[in-house]
Amino acid sequence: MIENCWNILVATEQEQLKLGAALAKFVLPRLVIYLTGDLGAGKTTLSRGILTGFGYQGKVKSPTYTLVEPYEFETFIIYHFDLYRLVDPEELELLGIRDYFHDTSIVLIEWPTKGQPLLPEPDIRIDIKMLTQGRQLCLTAHSLKGQQILQQLCA
């Protein structure tokens, strides 16, 4: 497992959206990104930034009650999961969780610990910590692909 952590400070929600959009420039299908942090840390904000970075212009809502929201693009699909309300990881089996990880998907997962052990390892894990002013994001690569993406983003 590759573990290089890049720490990034963002002062505002707008900066967090810009970081997500910048990350989207390097993200390719067949990628899994875990988003962790306390309630209100900005996991959905970062997801919204990633989606807008790909050109999505609609409303991006947290899929807290639906568990997953799909966003279809011309050649790939982004699945945005929010597992906060997941009671038992076995619920993911009923949802057909394995079907979401394929060659044309990018999967964003908020609260990934609630889906263990049924989720694949991430390529990138983003831990968001709330500060008095802004947020600290620790971006960690867990695969070679993830490392290449973060090196490009943080160059």
Rank of each mutant, 00 (worst) to 15 (best):
Y71V: 11
V27K: 01
L17C: 05
W6P: 00
T36C: 09
P70V: 01
Y71A: 13
I78E: 03
L51F: 08
Y71W: 07
T45M: 10
P70T: 07
Y84G: 08
D99R: 10
G146N: 06
Q16I: 15
P63K: 08
S47I: 03
I109D: 00
K129F: 12
F101S: 04
L35Y: 03
G134I: 15
L86S: 04
D123C: 11
E15A: 15
T113Y: 01
E91F: 07
P63A: 02
K129M: 10
L23S: 09
R85W: 07
G115W: 06
P117A: 05
R30Q: 14
H102R: 15
I149E: 02
L131I: 13
E91Q: 13
K25C: 11
F73P: 11
R48A: 11
I78A: 06
H102C: 09
P89I: 07
A141E: 08
I2E: 10
A41T: 14
V27H: 02
E90P: 04
G53S: 12
Q133D: 12
L153Y: 01
D82I: 09
Q136F: 01
P70L: 02
Y100L: 07
S62I: 03
V27M: 14
P122L: 12
T44H: 09
Y100W: 10
C138V: 14
V32M: 06
E15T: 14
I2T: 11
A24N: 10
L46I: 09
Q136W: 05
E72Y: 11
Y65S: 05
A141N: 10
I2G: 02
E93Y: 15
V60S: 08
A11K: 15
E69P: 00
P29F: 00
E13C: 10
A41N: 04
L23N: 10
K129S: 13
P112T: 10
K145A: 13
R135I: 14
E110M: 12
E90T: 13
T12L: 08
F26K: 10
L95R: 10
Y34D: 07
H80A: 05
K43T: 06
T44W: 02
I8M: 05
K18A: 08
L137K: 04
L86G: 03
E72P: 06
D99C: 03
S47L: 07
D127I: 11
I126T: 04
L19M: 09
Y34T: 00
L153A: 02
L35C: 05
F73A: 13
G53F: 11
Y84C: 05
C154V: 15
Q14T: 15
